[in-house]
């Protein structure tokens, strides 16, 4: 039995004439302990897909099975890092995370919970900002708080919707390593949405492109056969890395081209006869 299973998922927003089918015929299976990355163009329906898996949305047809059971609601087993951080602006960094751990570990004492909060705040190196409110933080800092909040709940499966998009390369690298660290300890399962192919190759076991919508569907998967722990600098010279990277980018460029030609807007050019200036 697969850990996570998406069977023939269709998702339509709206009703009647105004409806758009964002996702169609999505099929995906993930095993326990796997790290899967989904790459896709902006607006192709990645967040929609994530919300179907974490239980915030229900598919129009098809089913999402988590450990064999249909997903009908959110669960602490599946932690989410939202794309737009979604921090509560009236709470400080510490309070935002505290709220999460308190729900995840209802039996723990306040002191234990605070310890968890501090640990994860330190992990994303925000200890000096623990008493700041989100609006006093930069975009990247907010993103790190969102990462800390999701990981602090110690979920079995981590679902990440472009979690590191707003970060500089260095912080990004550090957090990638932190996430990999947490993932590999007691073999969690992870689903990463990203628009960065290199990030996908560095972190994931498989990369699956999401073809651009409407009617977005998953493309062929690319297996990343590189030993873990992976070394970022050494990877650049790894022939497997180069080959996979080229294959993925080529594929993405192809579907990108397709998208352009598929766009069925016909440009009617006015018929003009060029005037001769020499007369």
């Amino acid at each position: 039995m697969a850990y996570l299973e998406l069977n023939n998922i269709y998702k339509t927003y709206g009703e009647g004439d105004g409806s758009t089918e964002v996702l169609s015929n999505i099929n995906l299976t993930m095993d326990e302990g796997e790290f899967v990355a989904i790459v896709g163009f902006t607006g192709s329906g990645k967040t929609t897909l994530v919300n179907l898996i974490n239980g915030l949305l229900q598919p129009t047809s098809g089913e999402v099975l988590f450990k064999g059971k249909p997903v009908t609601d959110t669960s602490h087993e599946r932690g989410v890092i939202f794309q737009n951080y979604s921090l509560l602006p009236w709470l400080t960094v510490g309070q935002n995370i505290y709220m999460a751990v308190k729900e995840a570990f209802p039996k723990e004492s306040k002191a234990d919970l605070m310890k968890r909060v501090k640990e994860y705040v330190a992990m994303v190196s925000l200890s000096p900002a623990i008493n700041k409110r989100p609006k006093e933080l930069s975009g990247g800092m907010r993103q790190r708080v969102a990462v800390a909040r999701a990981l602090a709940m110690n979920p079995e499966m981590i679902i990440m919707d472009e979690p590191l998009g707003a970060l500089d390369a260095l912080t990004r690298g550090n957090l990638q390593d932190e996430i990999l660290n947490i993932w590999s300890q007691d073999k969690r399962t992870a689903l990463l949405i990203t628009n960065d192919v290199d990030e996908g190759i560095y972190m994931a076991d498989r990369i699956i492109p999401l073809k651009p919508g409407p009617n977005a569907t998953l493309g062929p998967e690319f297996k990343i056969d590189i030993e873990r722990p992976r070394d970022k600098t050494a990877m650049n010279d790894n022939p497997v890395y180069k080959k996979t990277r080229n294959a993925i980018i080529e594929y993405l460029m192809d579907i990108g081209e397709e998208r352009k030609t598929v766009s069925n807007v016909e440009y009617k050019l006015p018929e003009l006869t060029p005037k001769s200036f020499v007369a």
Binding site: N51, N54, L56, D73, H76, S86, M99, A100, E103
Partner: peptide
């Protein structure tokens, strides 16, 4: 915010 409330249950 509602989504956060839902995900945190």
């Amino acid at each position: 915010y509602i989504n956060v409330a839902k995900v945190l249950k």
